[in-house]
Design a binder for these strands. Structure first.
Lengths: 108, 108
DNA sequence: CTGTATCCTCATCGATACTG
DNA sequence: CAGTATCGATGAGGATACAG
């Protein structure tokens, strides 16, 4: 791969980095779904209407890479994979709830 | 309006609507810049490194349409245009600050 | 000073099919 | 069940020139 200029990391604005972590179209919905506790992959898929497999996988991977969720695999047949919020991810709960309340009051 | 019971489904949609309002790449930076008070167009452009005219105009228009900022034009020469957060926009301050603090703690 | 008007690139997202 | 692999569409975002 040629050295290509990475535009995304050019700017170091913290707010924009945060958006890279939780600004994805489905990120907040997934985090929201995980607030009550651990969920299996299929549960998340069912709990979040409109999302598709590819996006769920993609967002979960991104969040795992950013330390927001942990992924646990159990060697069962058929396979079982569970996702849980880390402490870092759980601390988003009040923030996302506030954001949600703000939206309810002003957007709906 | 009277349906107090909110289905999980609707909650998730709301989160995505919120992203449509403040999830733009520069939205939060602009709102953040407006917390201290009214700013002129050129001030915003200067305060937000990396943004370009087109995006600043675009986001400001979007925010104005969503009732987050108000736009005031003064018929001076050269023209003066000021942007101010509405009450709706100002209520985002604690939320964005919390988000920012979260990012500082975990992303940096 | 405060925007428009173009043109363009690239990431994001969706749909579908397939696999261990 | 929990993902991969591909392809295509869309549009967000950037660069630049120009206008009122």
């Amino acid at each position: 791969m040629k050295e290509k200029k990475i535009k995304k990391n050019d700017e170091r604005c913290a707010l924009q980095e945060i958006l890279g972590v939780i600004g994805g179209k489905w990120s907040m919905s997934i985090i929201y779904a995980l607030f009550p506790g651990t969920k299996r992959f299929s549960e998340l898929e069912r709990l979040i209407p409109g999302i598709n497999t590819r996006m769920l996988v993609k967002e979960l991977k991104n969040m795992e890479a950013n330390g927001i969720v942990v992924r646990n695999v159990y060697a069962t047949v058929p396979p079982t994979v569970e996702y849980t919020l880390t402490a870092k991810g759980a601390q988003l709960e009040p923030i996302i709830n506030d954001l949600y309340k703000w939206g309810l009051e002003y957007i709906s």
